[in-house]
């Protein structure tokens, strides 16, 4: 496994990038479900823009999503962030989950539009359902998700 735990400031949790022969994955963990989703998004941000990412929190994009269960909700959340990056030319700096349950979330992504020096490192085609998991572990939450590159 490439990297150790990366603590994420105010959010209690972290993530690491998972090896995959052709693609890449993210393993995230946190004390709460909302923090877990934030940590997973930070993993995606690293894959797309590297670390550290110099995006400034200038604009806020609101999100409301629904899915069949927690796992599918995580795919939808990361999928929306990916769409913002690829199609809207956005670069996220911060993630916030206001409300989350088993099938719905309301949250926001704060960042700025891409500019010279703030472009994606690579194309991520999609967020997949392969070996997808979101589960409670040791009194907190853990998630695993793979991306198609």
């Amino acid at each position: 496994m490439p990297e150790p735990l990366r603590p994420q400031g105010a959010v209690k949790g972290g993530y690491r990038l998972l090896e995959h022969t052709a693609d890449m994955g993210i393993e995230a963990w946190a004390a709460t479900l909302d923090a877990l989703f934030v940590c997973a998004a930070q993993g995606l941000q690293e894959i797309l823009f590297g670390r550290p990412c110099s995006a400034e929190p200038r604009q806020q994009q609101e999100l409301e999503l629904e899915a069949g269960d927690r796992e599918e909700l995580l795919v939808a959340w990361l999928g929306e962030i990916l769409f913002m990056v690829e199609q809207r030319g956005f670069c996220p700096a911060l993630f916030h989950i206001e409300k989350i349950d088993r099938q719905r979330l309301r949250g926001s992504v704060v960042g700025e539009y891409q500019r010279e020096g703030l472009r994606p490192l690579r194309e991520v085609k999609a967020v997949t359902y392969h070996r997808l998991s979101v589960r409670r572990q040791d009194g907190g939450w853990q998630a695993r998700i793979y991306l198609d590159l």
Binding site: G68, E71, E72, A126, T128, Y129, H130, L132
Partner: peptide, 25 residues
């Protein structure tokens, strides 16, 4: 692909297809 994976996740439940991996929906 992304849009129809969501359709197929529901379809697999509807038609009672057991999935060893959700990506095979």
């Amino acid at each position: 692909c992304d849009d129809y994976l969501r359709v197929m996740l529901r379809a697999a439940r509807k038609y009672g297809i057991a999935l060893p991996d959700r990506q095979l929906c």
